[in-house]
């Protein structure tokens, strides 16, 4: 009786009602954003590229299976071979999902401001943070769903055809999804200030610059410059997508990750590899929160015209 009455008090409290209303508005913005993303040209282009990519994977798989000595190689490599194939396939799927998420998100708020569609929305009893987070959730949902469906389908195909089921795939997909979510958050936050085109250029340049610092590491190793090595190592954390990808590679391939640069930023040879830190996923979670907070702060302070 007391429990029921307490529950009734909580459910009827202004805080609970406000939370429920806020959740409703978030869901409304998120679902509309997801529907817009689902219908965007970016997604159509991504799906076409994806079909081409899956076709390429099928061709590679067929060529490997029918190559001379394939059976001997498969017996020798065992699960490692399947893991390498998955690394290649999931890497591509992850990149496609990431860029799909970015391209559907870069104009998510900027376009609404440019077209004036935002005005009818902000005239409603909605907080600015609800708009930013709703946009983020809607776009992230589509990109992550895209990655998970494709990633699990690839893993299932590999399992069914080879009989080898790689159990770490869900964990790897979780890390790759975190990357996608972070890139969507960066794109949405950028769209609160920049035009769609400027935001797209900024996000892509940032991504390319901060996920390829291994080149700097290599130069540092060649010229034996500790400063360059430190810069290459820590600048990656300005956008921790690269280090988390490396962690996913490490989990998927284990010690063999060094052969493909996993855990080292893409440079074969341990002596020039960037250090891998297992806590990086936790750092990326905090980074995600910070980026969303910055986006909310930025959007809350600007005039919508």
């Amino acid at each position: 009786m007391t429990t029921r009455s307490t529950a009734g008090t909580v459910l009827g409290s202004p805080l609970w009602l406000a939370t429920r209303e806020s959740a409703g508005r978030l869901a409304a913005i998120a679902s509309l954003s997801a529907r817009e993303a689902f219908r965007s040209r970016s997604l159509v282009v991504a799906l076409v590229l994806n079909l081409l990519y899956l076709g390429l994977l099928a061709l590679i798989g067929y060529a490997i299976a029918n190559a001379p000595g394939a059976q001997e190689a498969a017996d020798l490599l065992g699960e490692t071979g399947a893991r390498f194939f998955l690394w290649f396939a999931l890497g591509g799927a992850s990149a496609l999902a990431l860029f799909t998420g970015v391209f559907t998100s870069v104009g998510s708020i900027a376009t609404e401001i440019e077209r004036g569609t935002i005005l009818a929305v902000v005239a409603r009893p909605i907080a600015r943070w609800e708009i930013v987070i709703g946009k983020f959730l809607g776009n992230a949902l589509i990109a992550v769903a895209y990655l998970l469906v494709e990633g699990l389908a690839i893993a299932a195909a590999v399992g069914l055809l080879s009989g080898i089921w790689v159990t770490v795939v869900p964990l790897v997909l979780l890390l790759l999804s975190l990357n996608v979510v972070v890139m969507v958050a960066v794109a949405v936050a950028g769209s609160t200030r920049l035009s769609t085109v400027a935001n797209a250029i900024t996000v892509i340049v940032l991504y390319l610059a901060l996920t390829n610092t291994a080149i700097l590491q290599l130069i540092g190793a060649i010229v034996d410059n500790e400063g360059l090595r430190l810069l290459a190592d820590w600048s990656r954390y300005l956008l921790p997508v690269g280090p988390v990808s490396d962690l996913a590679t490490e989990i998927l391939l284990g010690p063999a990750a060094a052969m493909v640069g996993g855990g080292g930023g893409g440079v074969p040879g341990r002596e020039v590899l960037l250090p891998m830190r297992e806590w990086v996923w936790l750092y990326e979670l905090g980074y995600l929160g910070l980026v969303i907070a910055l986006g909310v702060w930025s959007f809350s302070r600007r005039d919508l015209r």
């Binding site: 509309l32 529907r35 817009e36 219908r39 077209r115 004036g116 569609t117 005005l119 009818a120 005239a123």
Partner: peptide, 13 residues
């Protein structure tokens, strides 16, 4: 409040 902007825009779908 009810508000009708001059150029009322919305998702066409």
């Amino acid at each position: 409040l009810g508000y009708l902007p001059e150029q009322f825009q919305f998702p066409g779908f």
